[in-house]
Nucleic acid binder design. Structure first.
Lengths: 290, 290
DNA sequence: AGTCAATAATCATTATCATGATTATACTGA
DNA sequence: TCAGTATAATCATGATAATGATTATTGACT
């Protein structure tokens, strides 16, 4: 017809894929049927019938839903797809995938952190369990060992951040909890994998201050003094932010995309095929000079 | 109800699915080969060979990568899978899926917003284009019409939030930009679909104040006065937050999960099969009394 | 009790056809 | 002749169907 003249809209954008339509259809089932985590979806053969689609297409859709964390699939008898809480891990992973393509700097992260962390800390006053307090104290002890050089810098830094991570998981505001936990986790993983960026090394005066702040914060939590908590945390993270601001560097974003591999990929047969290199190795500018 | 207890997969955590391993493998290719958006991946038949897996499995993996926004797949000659920026939309959708299962309140959202928005506003000083300024002015005009009752409340509210959304997209900090844009978009969509929660109605004194604040902010932007911007925005969003705090209600989370359906699902054949209801309609407590 | 087999469900492969996008080619009309 | 449009060839994904392999549950048999 007359569609040959202008082709500004490829069909692929209008005619959506069958699997994607099924994904949205099942999401609609979840909200319409008010399904809660644990509720079962029909099994694959029934879904074929209900959705009038083939096995492969249904499975593609289920795979997408699973990768988004909305369902969990188990095998065997009594198995199948069940609605599931979207886990923090899945959400965190999606955020990291996004930031991987953005020019993110350490300073960018710390600016946000400075605003959220004091509010988060104040919000958990009165909500910490004795176990939480004990865990907080433990991180401080590890940090003290770090100062004395009895544990390595990495462990020291992780303990330092673990303090904040424990707090954030007690935060009653779901949005704030998510954001603070994400930021702290990201800082932890970036600190681990980016050797250049062991920010705040152990001989820095900051590390000593951090321990004092953490200890003072624990006291304030036990006194249930929200305003003191807020002030202390504000000073603490602001101090960290100032140090980071002096070195305005991009983070090593590679580890935002790939998770630490719990199980490496092995091709099916041909056991000799071990390396499995990327198909198109086109070496561009290296990390160092970009 | 013997299956009420949800056992989260005993061995699925050890023996992982082939498609998931391929997903991680390809992610590893992307960071190792330093692939940028637009770069092509091998085509499906080659991936079968490289990964020693069947077509269906490879396709499942590609579908997951596509749903996560890391690749885009096109058909036809010169088609195939290409690395892609993870879009804001995909990221926003993942965050919403997570929050759908969390007990989120309006107040929760506004507490975070109060902290981020002033910093975001200050950060865009000097970065707004004349087009941005014009767009900002336009939203203020629409709000004025809203006060006079010449546009409906929904349009009024959307224009009010659009002001903030325009600003957030100019923010140079990728993390802060993402968060502010997400929060404003979420407030917009929630305001649209939740009739109960047309917060800040047009006859409220807040709407009048908002216009004054927005106008004053535009002036401050033109003067490139970052501190004045920060102060004004802080007062503005704090005022909104106070109003919201008085009505401590849960948000209607259904529209966090479902995307606005651009194309409804239609089964393949059997055109009479129209309703396609959810398989297990188990009506639980309604929205009203929970 | 324990072991082992039957069973129920997903997981994975293979083969085949359908559909959309690109490119080259031939045809047509001023 | 030449521009412009049908038309066909080709390439690569999209979707279906059939089949066997795994894996977790269940229950019966020692």
């Amino acid at each position: 017809m007359s569609e040959a003249v202008f082709k500004p809209t490829p069909r692929a954008l209008l005619r959506r894929k069958r699997a994607d339509l099924i994904v949205e259809e099942i999401k609609r089932w979840i909200v319409a049927g008010d399904l809660r985590p644990g509720d079962r979806l029909p099994q694959e053969t029934q879904l074929e019938e209900l959705l009038q689609s083939s096995r492969g297409t249904v499975r593609e859709a289920l795979k997408v839903l699973e990768s988004q964390g909305l369902i969990e699939i188990t095998r065997g008898a009594k198995g199948g797809a069940r609605v599931s809480h979207v886990s923090y891990e899945k959400t965190s992973s999606a955020l990291r995938n996004f930031l991987y393509f953005e020019p993110l700097t350490w300073s960018n992260i710390y600016r946000v952190r400075e605003k959220l962390e004091p509010m988060m800390a104040a919000s958990v006053v009165g909500l910490l369990t004795p176990a939480d307090i004990a865990a907080l104290r433990h991180t401080v002890e590890v940090c003290k060992l770090g100062i004395k050089g009895e544990v390595d810098q990495r462990t020291h830094r992780i303990a330092e951040l673990e303090f904040h991570s424990i707090l954030s998981q007690a935060c009653p505001n779901p949005l704030l909890r998510l954001l603070c936990r994400f930021i702290n986790d990201m800082l932890r993983d970036l600190s681990i994998s980016d050797p250049r960026s062991i920010i705040l090394p152990k001989d820095s005066s900051f590390a000593v201050d951090a321990i004092k702040f953490h200890a003072a914060l624990i006291d304030a939590f036990e006194d249930k003094d929200a305003e003191r908590v807020r002030t202390l945390m504000s000073q603490h993270v602001h101090g960290a932010g100032c140090i980071v601001s002096q070195r305005e560097e991009e983070v090593d974003q590679d580890n935002l995309l790939i998770a630490p591999p719990v199980e490496t990929f092995r091709p099916r047969r041909k056991p000799d095929r071990r390396g499995l290199a990327a198909p198109k190795q086109k070496p561009r500018k290296t990390k160092a000079n970009r």
